[in-house]
Amino acid sequence: MNKLLFFLLSALVVYFQLSVFGVFFNAKLIPNVVLSFVICLVLLQGIEKSLIWIMLIGFLIDIGSAWLWGTSALILAVTSAIAEKINRYTEIRSLKSGQIFVLAFSLLASSFAFDFLGLAISKIESYWLGQNIFYSFSFFSFEYGAKSAAAIMAGIFIYYLFRKWNVAYKLSS
């Protein structure tokens, strides 16, 4: 998979997130597949090599976002750094099931981190920059649990797909 193909794949995932998922899911149940996609890439090839993709995907998602231009990229970058740290400290390479658990944990933590950062940034943007953006949800609700579970499952699928396609190697070559 070359870089152009990967860019097209990223754009496809973003377009699905923006348009298709809304048809099948209630607005509050839409899983953040873009986040799972980015986190899987970061876990496979490291944040340094993924930064350019994080920025590109963040800019694309901001097309349909209420946030200011660049906010999604910023949140994705910080979330990715957190996910990489978690993964480094908790990695269990020997057990396949352990690896899935670590991956699921990294994705769940990323999901929390993403939404928490989104909440914090939207508050900063609202108060300091005079923008009227409101971002609020309950972390402890059925909708949030279902949304996170779907994002984790999507993430596990994407991770194994990336590994099968050897994305990390092909993007760096």
């Binding site: 340094e48 930064l51 231009w69 660049g70 970058a77 943007e125």
Partner: peptide
């Protein structure tokens, strides 16, 4: 350093966006 540079760049970009500079770019991409 690379990570910090990206973060600073994005914060500057957000600040510029807050002045309405992002609308033409968003419009074109949308």
């Amino acid at each position: 350093g690379k990570f910090l540079a990206v973060i600073i760049l994005l914060v500057i970009l957000i600040f510029i966006s807050s002045r309405g500079a992002d609308n033409p770019v968003k419009g074109i991409l949308l």
